[in-house]
């Protein structure tokens, strides 16, 4: 009885051991959701376009240079904010569309450090949520005096409260999907 049982056990064990030894290589995962790049596109009164992109440190290549936004004092700019997933260089995804689709759950805030910029929200219908709040993907900037400083752009997911009393935007609750700092130089 015992020997039979033992043999059965060993056989079972050996079968399982061998049947499980497949050597399939794991599939690569190119993250679908991750935002790797944040782009600000500026169009001035003369209809000239400037583009600045911040790339996540994990996805930078050798040629990457920290973006420095160069603006002129006393000027007005149409500014568009975009988010991209470039984790798979063969398949660049524009995440901005998803943000627009889920505009009720998203909110963008801007904060300037050491430089003064007048900002107004200028979202089209696809950027205005059910409560009538422009979520901040399109803005108009009016620069004032010259100076150097920073801009912090945040994309917030599922805030409990969005407040645009100050057009820079403030919120409570939610979690941060994007928080990047750009250098700004307002000069002549």
């Amino acid at each position: 009885m015992k020997t039979i049982q033992f043999t059965l056990f060993s056989l079972l064990f050996l079968t399982l051991f061998t049947s499980c030894s497949d050597d399939d290589a794991p599939e690569i995962i190119n993250e679908e959701e991750v935002i790797t790049d944040v782009t600000l596109t500026f169009v001035n009164e003369a209809n000239e376009t400037q583009t600045y992109t911040y790339t996540d440190p994990s996805y930078r290549d050798e040629n990457y240079q920290e973006p420095v936004i160069m603006l002129k004092p006393g000027s007005t700019y149409q500014v568009e904010l975009q988010f991209f997933n470039k984790s798979n260089p063969q398949d660049i995804e524009d995440i901005t569309n998803e943000v627009r689709e889920e505009r009720n759950d998203h909110f963008v805030t801007y904060a300037f450090g050491q430089v003064a910029v007048d900002l107004t929200r200028n979202d089209s219908a696809s950027g205005i949520d059910a409560a009538g709040i422009p979520i901040g993907l399109n803005t108009i900037w009016k620069t004032q005096t010259a100076g150097n400083g920073t801009l912090v752009v945040k994309l917030i997911h599922e805030p409990t409260l969005k407040d645009v009393t100050n057009p820079m935007g403030s919120f409570t609750g939610g979690e941060t999907d994007v928080e990047v700092a750009f250098q700004i130089q307002i000069g002549l």
Binding site: K154, T160, T172, G173, T176, D177, E179
Partner: peptide
């Protein structure tokens, strides 16, 4: 929460937010 800024807000806020 998302990042350190959220953590700061979480630590300093009245509980609960939601």
């Amino acid at each position: 929460i998302g990042n350190v800024s959220d953590l700061i807000r979480a630590i300093n806020r009245e509980k609960p937010i939601r």
